[in-house]
């Protein structure tokens, strides 16, 4: 019996730009961006809840737009700018969104948080003064089981206000 591993796996060397840094990686062409970020680049801040494009947990930014990293193939991403939660802010310099999430209790288990933060950042970059409904629409693809969402929407509003000030 020939199993699929005895077939040659096609791999490619790619140059990925993540959080402003260039990374040369050798990846199987079918590996997802989520896998490459987490397993090869050690960027475990990006989480996963389904790996099937259903929960939004794995959201990253590609050229500033929110994308599900579990559905993206790195082979398509050379020359694009990828941003993960590690590129958003650091413990010493929190992004206003991170600061607002922390202050308002928009983080409980924190597992949905990286995806929420990036979806929110994409929104604020596009629309610095979103209404509540616009925030909700921007976050509608990101599930959270802990918070009931209200504090998350509050936090995005607060961050928007502070960033506009």
């Amino acid at each position: 019996m020939l199993n699929e591993l005895q077939r040659p796996v096609h791999r490619e060397v790619l140059l990925l730009r993540v959080n402003g840094e260039e990374h040369q990686v050798l990846v199987p062409v079918h590996a997802t961006l989520l896998e490459v970020l987490r397993e090869q680049l050690g960027l475990t801040g990006t989480k996963h809840g389904c790996e099937l494009g259903e929960c939004g947990t794995c959201t990253v930014l590609v050229d500033g737009r929110p994308q599900l990293s579990c559905l993206l193939l790195p082979v398509q991403l050379e020359g694009h700018e990828i941003t993960t939660v590690e590129g958003l802010g650091s413990p010493a310099h929190l992004h206003p969104l991170q600061q607002a999430f922390l202050e308002l209790g928009a983080v409980q288990c924190g597992y949905c948080t990286p995806g929420m933060l990036l979806a929110a950042k994409a929104l604020l970059d596009r629309n610095p003064k979103p209404g509540r409904r616009q925030i909700e629409e921007a976050l509608a693809g990101n599930l959270c089981r802990c918070t009931g969402y209200a504090t998350i929407v509050d936090a995005v509003e607060l961050a928007a206000r502070r960033m506009g000030a």
Partner: peptide
């Protein structure tokens, strides 16, 4: 007092290590 959780910074910066993050 409504203080932020003590581990909030790790959880908003992606540095908290969940089981599947451990290698």
């Amino acid at each position: 007092r409504p203080l932020p959780r003590v581990d909030a910074v790790a959880r908003v910066t992606g540095t908290a290590r969940y089981a599947d993050d451990l290698q």
